[in-house]
Structure formats: C-alpha cells, structure tokens
Nucleic acid binder design. Structure first.
Lengths: 202, 202
DNA sequence: GTCTATATATCGATAGAC
DNA sequence: GTCTATCGATATATAGAC
C-alpha cells in the first residue's frame, strides 16, 4: 500500500480537522479564527500553515470528507439490501441512513448544511454538484416506486426535498442524552417518509 | 396617533434594513461588513451609526421583525378560520401560511433559520424563546388532532419538527420563476403534512 | 445626517530563528 | 514542526468638521 501522499495525514492535521470541524459547525466559518483552532489543538496559529495552506483549505477538506462520508453511509445501507429490493425497502434504508448520519455525525452534517457558502467559488461548485447527486439518488428511488405503483406522489421533486430536509433538521435538535435513542428517531422518520409517498403501511 | 419614538423609523433606516437583510441572508452576518451595507444604500459606513448603534443591533432589529412577521402571518391565517375549525383545517392553514412565508419572504426566513447564532447572548435567548413558542403553536394543533382521533401520530414532537423543517427548507430552493407557483407549493406541503399525521385524504 | 479621518483591534498569512 | 515577531489588510466604531 502506497503511503499517503500528503502532509495532511499527520496526527496533528487530524487534531486540527477535529477542532476546526467542531468550531466551524458551532460558530460558523467566518466567526472562527485560525487562532481559535490553533488554541484548541495547543499550538500557535502560524503552525497551522505547516499542515494546511489556508483557512479555506481546511473548510474544503472537511466539507469534501463530510460529503464523501454521507455518500458512503448511503451506499453501505443500500448495499446491504437484496439486489432486487423494492422501492419501499430502498426508501426506508435511505431515510434511516440519512437520519442516522445527521444525528450521529451532527458536526459534519451541520457543516454541509450551513457552511457551503463560505467555500471558494470552485469548491462551492463541486460541493453543490455532490449535493445534487445525493438528492438525485433519493429521487431515483421515489421515481421507481411511482413507476411500479408502489408509491403515490403528486410531485416527486417536492417529496424528495421534503424527505431530505426533514431528516437534515435532525442534526439541529438531536442530543444523545435526549428522550429518543437514535434508532427510535430513524424509525420515526422512516414512517414519516413512507407516509409522504403514500405507501400504505400494514 | 403618536409619532414613532425612535430615529430608526426614517426612510434611510428602512433602506439600511432592506440592504442588511439581503446581505445577511445571502452572505451571512459575519461575512457582511458595515461598508457593504452602507455601499448598498449609497452612504459611508460611519453614517450607519446615525441610525443604528451597532451592527448587532441591525441584526436584532431584523430578526425580531422577521419573527414577529412570521407570528402575524400564522395568526392571520388561523384567524380567518371558523372558531370551531377542526384540527385538520387548522393544520392545513398553519402549513400553508408557514410555507407561503418561507417562499415569499425568503430573506427573512433564511435570516431566522441560519443567523440566530450571531446574536448577542441576551438577544439569542429571546429569539429562541420566540422560535419555541412558534413550534409549540403547531404542536398544540397536532395534539388536538390526536386527542380527537382525527390524526394518528406515533410521536407528536417528531411530527411537529418534521413538518416545520420540511416547510422551512422551501426558503432555500424556491424561486418565483420556478416550475411551481407559490400556491402550488403550499398545496403540496399541506398534502405532505396531512399524510404525516396520517389524516385519511378523501 | 453626511462626510473625512482615525482610533483600536484583530484578521489571515509570512519570515526566519530554533 | 514549532515558535516569536510582524506584515498588510480590514473590521467595528468614534470624533469632529460641515
């Protein structure tokens, strides 16, 4: 196995990523300073530039990783299904994975859902393309359910966005010590998604 | 009628509000400078301080107004109903008003949904209280529908947040020149909300 | 109520010693 | 790879002339 090509695979770089992720998600990119990030890691701001070329590069590194993780999370969930799984099963797996990610990895989720506007123009375009592809993968499932007569949806695009956005919202209120466990939250949202596509339950 | 008490009711102050609202919503509070706002109005940054004491005061003014408008928008919609309207009718009116606001006044909506964290601690607390009250007013409607047997909801809190958040999301994608008119979007979301509370349609 | 000028602070980023 | 020192730009906000 070839060694990682970049300096950014050091242990310190990972500490920087973790600190930056938490603060970007909590306070926002613009309100977070390089000095803030450095202090969390226990170094000075100038030392950050031994690991990343700029503040924006840290944001892009985190954003790209988060979106790749989100894709991988969905792919894993769908890959566990039988190849011929019906749309109802695929939709349930997608929504459960989506909600689980937004509850379990809320810093990454919040970053992707509120800090894309701070990226450079070039990076912003790439991020939006990834987001559109993710949205499309859900729409494809709903389309299949409509085509098979399993789902009844008056507007596929609105249903797609509604299901995604209600799940995305979980990252803003879920707390591990709250009333509902993650698996209960996922199960609730699966029910709501199936209701939205008018899948007759039971 | 007594005259408005504050200097902040001048025409220039209103221009400042409009410019700040657009830029805070589009670029974020931290990324927007007083020079940016002033330039939009056609004055210098120092002149802004003849109308507002600080940048944060502008944000709070806009936030408070937006949340009051959101409340008034809901109150107007509910007041138009018969006093004895059933929960289904109240829910439909709430969701329609909620979505209409988030489509029609997207700058205000985006501000309330993404810039509260930039408020001072005292103002942030007040904003969160207003947001909680708004959320509660929807939960009360759903509770009534569950109590009357009209709705079937396995978790009222999750259903409340899901309905609010999918409607809130409209402010991020709706465009006046898009495929769907506002009234069509509202009608779609009313259907989705009724499906979520398992109200049997037709 | 607007302006110019400026105070004061802090930002991202760099230079160079160790 | 870390540090101290600092650069140059820019932030919010104020002072005072007009």
């Amino acid at each position: 196995m070839p060694q990682a090509v970049s300096k950014v695979r050091s242990a310190t770089a990972d500490e920087i990523r973790q600190a930056a992720l938490e603060q970007f998600a909590q306070s926002g990119y613009e309100a977070t300073t390089m000095r803030d990030i450095a202090a969390s890691v226990g170094i000075k701001a100038a030392s950050l530039y031994n690991h990343f070329d700029s503040k924006e590069e840290i944001l892009w590194d985190l954003t790209r990783s988060a979106m790749r993780d989100l894709d991988a999370n969905r792919d894993d969930a769908l890959a566990r299904l039988a190849p011929a799984a019906v749309p109802r099963v695929k939709l349930a797996a997608f929504v459960s994975a989506h909600v689980d990610f937004h509850a379990e990895r809320r810093h990454q989720a919040v970053l992707v859902n509120s800090q894309l506007g701070s990226l450079s123009q070039a990076h912003h375009r790439k991020a939006v393309a990834l987001r559109d592809a993710y949205e499309n993968s859900l729409r494809t499932i709903i389309d299949a359910g409509v085509a098979s007569g399993e789902f009844t949806v008056s507007d596929v695009q609105v249903a797609t966005l509604a299901i995604l956005q209600m799940g995305t919202g979980v990252s803003f209120w879920f707390r591990p010590d709250g009333r509902l466990r993650i698996d209960q939250v996922c199960a609730e949202y699966v029910k709501l998604a199936l209701a939205i596509v008018r899948h007759e339950i039971q």
